Computed example of a mutant assay.
Amino acid sequence: MSPESSKSPAAASSSLAQRKAPSEFDARINALLAGQNSDPFGILGPHPVSSGWGIRFFIPWAAEASIVFKNPAVSPAKIADAVKLRPEGFFEAVWPSNQPTAPEPGSYKIQGRTHYGESFEVFDPYAFPFFLTDFDLHLIGEGRHYDTYQKLGAHLHTVAGVAGTRFAVWAPAARRVSIVGDMNHWDGRVHPMRPRGSSGIWELFLPEIGEGAVYKYEILGPNGNLLPLKADPYAFRSELRPNTGSVVGDLEAHQWNDSAWLEQRQQTNWLESPISIYEVHLGSWRRVPEEHN
Rank of each mutant, 00 (worst) to 15 (best):
L139M: 10
D258G: 03
F120E: 08
Q264N: 00
W256M: 06
E142N: 07
A27C: 05
R175Q: 15
P72M: 09
S284T: 15
I275G: 09
E4A: 02
I110D: 05
P3F: 14
T244I: 11
F128E: 04
S238F: 05
V94Q: 12
S38N: 14
I209M: 14
I140V: 09
G112K: 01
D187P: 02
G164T: 09
A235M: 06
F135K: 10
V288M: 09
G221S: 10
S14W: 11
P76C: 10
L44Q: 10
F123Y: 15
R196Q: 07
H138N: 07
E263W: 00
S119A: 13
A11L: 15
N30A: 12
A127N: 06
S51D: 14
A163Y: 12
A63Y: 15
E272W: 07
W53I: 09
A168G: 00
R19G: 00
H138Q: 13
Q18F: 00
I29W: 00
L32N: 05
A62F: 12
R166V: 11
N243L: 01
A127H: 08
A21R: 05
G89L: 12
G141W: 10
V247Y: 02
A80W: 05
A21V: 00
A21F: 00
L271Q: 13
G141S: 08
L227Y: 04
P105T: 11
W61E: 15
W53D: 03
P222L: 12
F57I: 11
H155E: 02
A102G: 02
G54K: 08
P72A: 03
L16K: 07
S276N: 13
